[in-house]
């Protein structure tokens, strides 16, 4: 799914990576705890989170994830936007809650990781 389509579905604002909305992501990965993203996130995922701090940028960076969407109307401060831009991340902001965000994207065909089970 193209990020541009995601932006429209979520009525989102773009604060970093405006020129890269043509990029495609294949998976949705939703969590407020970064260890979950670190464990299961894939490079072609969009990271959906309501957590707003620098660790989200670090987590995306470390997991090779290129796109983040902050949910629940969270606004990033300058440091976060700067870090995202420095690392060529695409960052969207939506006022929707996490539930509505996941629901809309899933309904339009964005996939999740499937059954995880306990693999740790």
């Amino acid at each position: 799914m193209k990020l541009l389509e995601i932006k429209e579905l979520l009525e989102a604002e773009v604060v970093s990576g405006e020129d890269n909305l043509d990029m495609e992501v294949n998976l949705g990965c939703a969590a407020d705890l970064m260890s979950d993203i670190l464990a299961y996130g894939k490079p072609d995922s969009i990271l959906l989170t309501g957590l707003m701090n620098l660790q989200v940028i670090n987590t995306a960076n470390i997991s090779d994830i290129k796109a983040i969407c902050f949910v629940r109307g969270k606004k990033p401060d300058e440091n976060i936007i700067k870090a995202a831009r420095n690392n060529n991340l695409i960052v969207l902001l939506t006022n929707l809650p996490m539930f509505e965000t996941c629901g809309r994207l899933y309904k339009k065909g964005l996939k999740g990781l499937g059954y995880l089970g306990l693999d740790m």
């Binding site: 969590a31 996490m98 509505e100 996941c102 899933y106 309904k107 999740g112 499937g114």
Partner: peptide, 18 residues
């Protein structure tokens, strides 16, 4: 055993919204 993204997606398809 599903992750948040998918279980929410399935709930959404059942008509449950945010």
């Amino acid at each position: 055993e599903l992750p948040t993204f998918e279980i929410v997606g399935k709930l959404y398809e059942l008509g449950i919204h945010g």
